[in-house]
Structure formats: structure tokens, C-alpha cells
Computed example of a mutant assay.
Amino acid sequence: MSGQSVGPQYHIVGQHCPGTSMENSSYSQPSMLTLGFGQLREIKYFYSTLVLLCFMIIVVSNSAVISAIAMHRSLQEPMFIFIAFLCINGLYGSVIFFPFLFVNLLSKTQVISYVGCIIQVFSIHTYISCEVTILAVMALDRYVCICNPLRYSSIMSLATVFKLIGAAWLYVIALIAILVLLTIRLPLCGSVIQKIYCDNISVVKLSCTDTTANNVFGLLITAAIIGLMPILTLMSYAQILRVCMKASKAFRAKALQTCTPHLVTLTYFVADVLFEILLPRFPSTTLPYELRVLMSVQAFVIAPILHPLIYGWKLREIRLRVLQMFGAKPIADLHNNL
């Protein structure tokens, strides 16, 4: 994957230093790595202000949705709980990305310790991967709700909901942990990361040893997360579409209302993955530097802002509670006006 490609990439390509003998040479692990901020340093105060503003919006909006669902028993249903955990994952991704980016923008030198880089690799990959697995679980929930409405309450109990969420996270954590362990074992002969944050491909490309194991396992993870989860999601919605085609217009309208936010999020991630796959196939000069950086960070900006917007504001139940939390009219009046 190229230096400024978007988001985490699991398919890793080995890199060897010309004129070196891997068998007879050893490389010390660098204690510090340099990040490729490039032209961002020229107007760092402008970019740091944008970063701080985005981070504040993400924290406030996602926290509001999470708090509304946690504080009101009427919202503690499967669909809303899944939304809450999607927002929690958005907060997780933002906390591991924005504060570090903000500090580096204002620093004279943009560096990160090797240990900090590895932690960021694990965090970024788990964030992106959990986003995909939670969306797949949410699609399953919508499938059961629409295609088996009479059995929905018995199938999707709260215990089942938390088991599905736990399984989605453990599945990702186990795979990414192995990926990171394979990366840690590699000695590095370089110290410059060609991105403004650390991801797995950027670290592995600094190694001068054989990375075949990383290649193979990277392909497996790509298939197991980026490939399998969207397929399961589309299968769920294919079944939902089949049921809706036979139902009344009112039923189709209600199903569309609950499924549209999920489809918007899924479409965004498909576009994100397509960009990630296609960009490395073109020269780094194909796109302007600022645009490449923007596309590389959009997974940490768009999704955490999009989730509270399309779920917290689109779904009436959450919208009413959030407005009430911020001192809006009494809930009875809100029901009459919204």
C-alpha cells in the first residue's frame, strides 16, 4: 500500500533493502520513527484547529447518543444498543487518532516511539475492523426483526445482543493481535513512516527481512473481515428486500426507514475500501498531497460524525431524548412538535 493510502490495509508486501544480505545482516529496532507530515507543517495552526474542532464534535455528538440510550430504559432495545456500541467504537477510533495528531501538528518534529507506533497500529486496525463487524451484526438484527418479527423478542434478547457484540470485538481483537505480533518480530532498517499515523503496512515496509508470513496472514484477514463481513451484511439485506417486495407499502416504508442509515454507513465503508485498494495502483503524484492526506484520515472523521447524525437524528426516539438532555422542551411537547 502506498505511503498516503487510506486507512488500514491488511495485505502486506515485503520490502528488501538493495545490496544487503538479510541472512548476514541484523538491524536494530529504532526507538523513534518519523512521520510524513510534509506540507501540513506549513499551515499547522489551521490544521490543528480543524483537528480539535472535529474531535470536539465527535466526542459531544457520540457521547450524547450513548448517554441517551444508557439513561433511558425505553431505548435499551437491541437496535439502540447496537447503535450505542457503534458510537462507542467511533469514540475509540477518535481518541486513538485525534489527540496524537493534534500534538504532532504543533510539535517541531513529527515523531512517534516504536512502542507507540505499534500501539497505534493495533488500535487503528481494531477500530476499522470493529466498525465492519458491528455493521454485520446490526444487519443480522434487522434481518431477524423484519423477516421474523414474531420471534424477534425471543431471538434477540439482551443477553444475545451482548454476546453478539462481544463476539464481534473478540473476533477482530484475536486476528489483529496475531497480525501485530507478526509485525513486531520484524527487524526494521528504516525509520520514516510515509503517513501521518502508523498503520501495519507502513511499519512492515520498513523491514528488510522476508515478510511472506505477513503477506499470507494479511490476505487471510482481508478475506475474514473486509471480505466476509460486507458479504454477510449484503446477504441479510437481500433477504430483507425479498420480504419487503411481498409486503405492503406501509411495511416497506417502515423497513426502509430503519435500514437506510445502515445502508448509508455500509456504502461509505465500501467506498473507503475501494479507495484503499485502488490508490496504491497509481503513482503518488496522481493526487495532490492534501487530497491524499484527507482521504487517508476520512475513516476517522466521517464515520464518527455520520453515526450520531444518521442514527441520533434520523431515529425519532433517540432524537427526542438527546434534545431533552440538552434542555429542550419537555418530552411531551417534543412529541407534539417533532
Results as ranks from 00 to 15, higher is better:
Q257T: 06
I118W: 05
R321S: 10
V204N: 06
N337W: 13
L50H: 10
L206M: 13
L158A: 14
A224P: 02
A139I: 00
A255P: 12
C208A: 15
A213V: 12
R242H: 11
S2P: 03
L323N: 13
S67M: 11
V6R: 08
F102C: 01
S154T: 08
N336Y: 12
V203H: 01
T260K: 07
I221Q: 10
Y114D: 02
D272G: 04
G3N: 01
A253E: 12
K329Q: 09
S61T: 13
Y143D: 12
H16P: 01
V297S: 08
F300Q: 14
T34S: 09
K314I: 05
L323S: 09
Y45H: 06
F97L: 04
L274Y: 06
F85H: 02
I88T: 07
G218S: 11
I318E: 06
K44V: 02
V264N: 00
A68I: 05
V216H: 09
I178H: 12
G218L: 05
F122M: 03
S28W: 09
F162I: 07
P18H: 11
V192R: 05
Y10D: 14
I176M: 10
F100T: 09
S61P: 06
T49K: 08
A224S: 12
S94V: 05
M1L: 09
I83H: 03
I12A: 02
E77C: 08
I66Q: 07
L105T: 02
T133N: 06
M71C: 11
T49M: 07
Y171R: 02
L306M: 14
I240Q: 07
E290A: 10
G116C: 01
S5K: 02
L256Y: 14
F326R: 00
G93M: 01
C130P: 01
I146M: 08
Y197G: 01
V51E: 11
G166K: 06
G327E: 06
C259N: 13
R242Y: 14
L164G: 01
F82D: 00
S67L: 13
A328F: 11
V293N: 02
K249M: 07
I331M: 15
F46R: 01
A167E: 00
L33A: 01
L309E: 03
S63H: 10
L234A: 12
P99D: 15
C244S: 15
F80W: 09
H335M: 10
V180H: 08
K249T: 07
R319C: 12
T126L: 03
F251H: 15
G227E: 01
L294F: 15
A159C: 11
M1Y: 06
I88C: 13
F97C: 05
P261W: 04
V111R: 03
Q110Y: 04
T209A: 13
F46P: 00
H307D: 07
G166S: 07
Y10W: 13
C17K: 14
M138C: 06
Y47K: 00
